[in-house]
């Protein structure tokens, strides 16, 4: 027991941030990739916060009931898919605003997750196995930091895949067309309704998996406070990333690392102002938006139909 550890001091802060990027960044990665796909098709889904919670609860419950965490991950994605179907269908009805539906879906999704999740707060569910990239010669702290979640690797793979999908496949083109200029898409004979519905659903599937990473990997529990707003932040992250999947990856790592900053700084003696440290990612995002946006030109990568009624 109690491995012989040595104090790492400021190296510990660095290590915490690096490890935190991978641990805490994984849910951000999945929700932001999901939101990116959704927004590319021209719809916003603010309801991913509810999807994330439902995903976290479903994954934990299924893993506990069946003993298979991977089945939990799959079911979390499917639960997300169902919530996405509601959002995708409802937000495309005439005069129905997608931001409003998103907020209603947060209430509904979290309600469902909390309602069904009550019996699963107490028990410990089997966790996803981690992949060990370290060797025994490394210091224990580094060994712990190198326990990588397969979900993180999965997300790492999905990001470039999604980039390629948008750039080089027919379906990717459809989604971009629907998101950029629905009229052109209509002329191509693409069903805007179907493309958007599918995009929102697949996006929510990913967000559901993001929830699974919260409850089955890090921090690895199911409680009603498991998400600290990662789902809502996805929308900001995607803007931060300029609607580019690979940049979603960097943005997620940054946000994940920022979550580790406050506790890590306190552990080396910087004790005051932690509320402000914790708000750093939001301030940073706002600043970057202010600096990169301009009324003279539209942001590169922004889907043209985003936030409009068609």
């Amino acid at each position: 027991m109690a491995a012989e550890t040595t104090a790492l001091g400021w190296w510990g802060v660095l290590l915490a941030i690096v490890a935190g990027t991978m641990r805490g960044g994984t849910p951000f990665l999945f929700v932001s990739l999901g939101e990116c796909l959704t927004e590319k098709s021209g719809k916003i889904n603010l309801g991913l916060e509810g999807t994330l919670l439902t995903g976290a609860m479903t994954a934990y419950a299924i893993s506990y009931l069946t003993g298979s965490p991977w089945l939990g991950v799959l079911m979390a994605g499917l639960a997300g898919l169902m919530l996405g179907a509601i959002h995708g269908w409802l937000s495309q009805q005439p005069r129905v605003n997608d931001v409003a539906v998103g907020i209603a879906m947060i209430v509904f999704g979290s309600g469902i997750a909390f309602f069904l999740g009550k019996p699963f707060i107490q028990p410990s569910a089997p966790q996803l196995p981690t992949i060990n990239l370290s060797n025994a010669a490394m210091p224990p702290a580094l060994q712990a930091a190198l326990q990588i979640s397969p979900l993180f690797l999965l997300g790492l793979g999905i990001a470039p895949l999604m980039s390629w999908f948008f750039r080089s496949t027919r379906w990717g083109l459809y989604i971009r067309a629907v998101g950029d200029s629905p009229d052109a898409a209509r002329a191509m004979g693409v069903s805007i309704f179907k493309v958007r519905l599918l995009s929102v659903m697949i996006g929510s599937f990913l967000a559901g998996i993001g929830g699974a990473s919260l409850s089955l990997y890090y921090p690895g529990v199911w409680t009603e406070r498991i998400s600290s707003g990662q789902g809502l932040m996805a929308v900001a992250l995607v803007i931060f990333a300029g609607w580019k999947p690979v940049q979603c990856l960097w943005a997620s790592l940054l946000f994940g690392g920022a979550q580790a900053l406050g506790p890590a700084l306190q552990s080396v003696g910087i004790q005051e102002g932690y509320y402000l440290f914790n708000a750093a990612p939001y301030i940073l995002t706002l600043l970057i938006m202010i600096l990169t946006c301009s009324p003279k030109r539209t942001l590169s990568g922004v889907p043209g139909a985003l936030g409009t009624d068609n």
Partner: peptide, 10 residues
């Protein structure tokens, strides 16, 4: 359970 009111509202 207390979450019922959230489902109701949603």
């Amino acid at each position: 359970p207390d979450a019922t009111v959230l489902v109701f509202q949603g």
